[in-house]
Nucleic acid binder design. Structure first.
Lengths: 173, 173
DNA sequence: TCATAATCGTTAGCTATGAAACGATATTAC
DNA sequence: GTAATATCGTTTCATAGCTAACGATTATGA
């Protein structure tokens, strides 16, 4: 997870980048939308920082990746979920789900069980050990979320959320 | 790249999630900061959407991943870069840089050359083919960035950027 | 001088990720 | 009732990503 552009301390695109883009890409001069660049880069950078912080400060305690934690969270909420449904919930391929649940099973945090009526379907369920891990990690995870946005007032938080929600809706993300 | 929480159409955390969190995590009731959850999740979701959109609509034309493109971009701007410097610029491990530049070299988009004076150092340089690819892809990439935030006014874009810049600064992301 | 330490890139071994192929199972069509 | 089709999860093969170990090279220090 890597950002494309570089910025200086004032949040401005570096001059070298402006120069290269203007000179080498077949774009009309001044067609570069610096505000758009700034928005998407800052969003991406915060997302990356969020993920890194969590993996480093919280999830590493149990050797979990971001996606593993996300799947554990879903199982925590929904108790038992088909792998197909897990793939939809987390928006990763079923092959990835297959691999990750295999890893989680190795750690004894979840177990898989074939449906008795339709043997094509596999349910994934959290073990007691998995529940204990979530009960330990979730509060720390949430604490991390709070810390990250703590420099924004509640009003500003609501404001950012609202604007990003519009972006999500318009793009059907 | 996966989000943890689920929201309903109004941008609210699902009731099942609130219930589970309140009941099962050792957190005092009402200690869940829903605004913080909403901000970080929306940020993460936009970042994920951005990356997916680009990989699907732009980068796949040349079989490039987000990170490959990011490295190509850096080489486009800086012409020739040591692998060590590339690792710092993109904030991934030098092992990853080694693998990705190997792949890019296979595609004949870059080449590697050992420094003559200090043979421990390797410079990565973009080929003409690599330049052509960037000149083709970059305008499309930028177009994608503009599209994504097009539902926000310029004022709103500046606003979001400014607030996120504060988050980045405070967290040293 | 020449052994030790520091630096740099690659390799090894692991998980994550997706596309495509595959095998098992269930459903549909005729 | 059986052949064709659809569905589901896993496997395979590729890239991405990390840490740690390694090999080559350069710098240091006594």
């Amino acid at each position: 997870m890597v950002t494309v552009y570089s910025f200086n301390d004032d949040g401005e695109l570096l001059q070298e980048e402006k120069d290269t883009i203007n000179q080498l890409s077949k774009m009309p001069l001044d067609s570069l939308n610096l505000d758009a660049v700034s928005v998407v880069t800052n969003i991406y950078r915060v997302a990356q920082g969020l993920r890194n912080k969590m993996e480093r400060e919280v999830l590493s305690k149990h050797g979990l990746s971001w996606t593993s934690f996300s799947i554990l969270y879903d199982l925590w909420i929904w108790k038992s979920v088909e792998t197909k449904k897990l793939a939809e919930l987390t928006a990763v391929s079923k092959a990835t789900i297959s691999n990750i649940t295999k890893t989680l099973e190795k750690k004894e945090l979840v177990f898989r069980k074939t449906d008795t009526r339709d043997r094509r379907i596999t349910f994934v369920t959290m073990t007691d050990k998995g529940k204990k891990v979530m009960e330990e990690l979730y509060p720390q995870f949430h604490q991390g979320e709070v810390e990250i946005v703590s420099s924004l007032s509640v009003k500003e938080q609501k404001n950012v959320s609202e604007l990003l929600r519009r972006v999500i809706k318009e793009n059907q993300f």
